[in-house]
Simulated scan of single mutants.
Amino acid sequence: KGACGDTYAYDPYVKDCNFGFYHHDPEDRYIWDIDVFAHYYITGEKAVNGKIYKQFVESKSCDYASGTEIALIREEDKKVYLLDGEKEWLWYDFTLEKGDTITIESASPLNPSGEKLKIPVVNTDTFEIGGKLRKRIYLRGYDTWIEGLGTENRLPLHSFEPSCGMDCGDKLYYQRIGDKISYLDNYFIHDLLEPCTSSVLDTQIEALRIARTPDALIVTLPGTGYRLAELTEMTGRLAWCAYLDSEAEGVTIPTATLSPGAYIVTLSNDRGGRIVQKVMIK
């Protein structure tokens, strides 16, 4: 049970999926330009010393096959381990509760400060994110862990970096399992369509009412004030769009000429907000 008596199923971190991070250094403190998108894939399997690990791959494109393996990871009893050469390190521990302390060794690749860290857990709770209840762990002064997603505001291999703290602009903005977006964060630095998924101002994932005919999707608008409807491929390519009357109650999206596959429906309102939902076209 969660902190409020709610029940939920544990969502493992180590699963076939990919994460999107935006690396933002607004003051250019590190001299080089890190205002870029990066994608991290958990994929494949490797056996090392009798243990089965999955590959953790970094890619600047939308295809892990073109990326670089940066770690091997595994999960056991809600704890995530990183294999660094011959040494295995604890990466995440989702069993932690308020009052616990986690110790990070000085030699750990997760600890760039070089000092042994003893970090107290100041609170835990459960909340709904991406349509799923998840446990959230607050580590004093360093990070927030979210079950199934990992760190809330750090790069995947930089979970502990006290010299950087909350000033870093590294932001987890999506997790995708297959062609399903399981988490999509509000993204307020740029209003854009990023190549691997939609990430826009005031984005929400909601259950839209979408009826299907052989030649169209009929979308019921969740209220008034929507001015633009878009259909994009999962690559980010725009397949169709139309301007809407702000009082319109629905929109018909033609699909007869589209190839079968996964698409994203985006509705934009006159207040700068958007609703995003994946649909399958057969």
Rank of each mutant, 00 (worst) to 15 (best):
L184T: 01
L90G: 07
S159V: 15
S163D: 08
G85A: 05
I73V: 09
P26S: 12
T7M: 06
G223E: 00
I52Q: 06
L96H: 10
S61H: 08
P120D: 02
Y10K: 05
C168W: 11
E247H: 14
W89M: 00
T43L: 01
G85E: 01
T124N: 09
V122I: 15
T255Y: 03
K60Q: 11
T68L: 12
V57N: 04
T68Q: 13
S61T: 14
S113R: 00
D84Q: 06
S163M: 08
L238H: 03
P120W: 03
D170Q: 07
C196P: 04
F160I: 08
G141D: 12
Y92D: 03
E45N: 14
T252A: 05
A107D: 09
N49W: 10
F94P: 02
D191W: 12
E105N: 03
A262C: 10
P12E: 01
E115P: 12
I119D: 00
W91K: 04
T68Y: 15
I146V: 10
F127W: 09
K282C: 07
I119A: 12
S199H: 13
H23S: 11
H23V: 12
E45P: 09
V122R: 07
D215A: 13
R134T: 02
Y64E: 04
Y30L: 15
M280D: 02
L110H: 06
P254V: 05
G99S: 15
Y10W: 15
K1Q: 05
L221M: 01
I119L: 08
N49K: 14
R29H: 09
A38P: 02
R74E: 06
Y263F: 05
Y138W: 14
G148C: 08
P254G: 04
G273Q: 01
T126N: 10
L155S: 08
L217Q: 02
K60C: 15
V36I: 13
M280K: 10
G67C: 12
D270V: 15
D270S: 03
T126M: 04
G2N: 00
G178Y: 04
Y173V: 02
L157T: 02
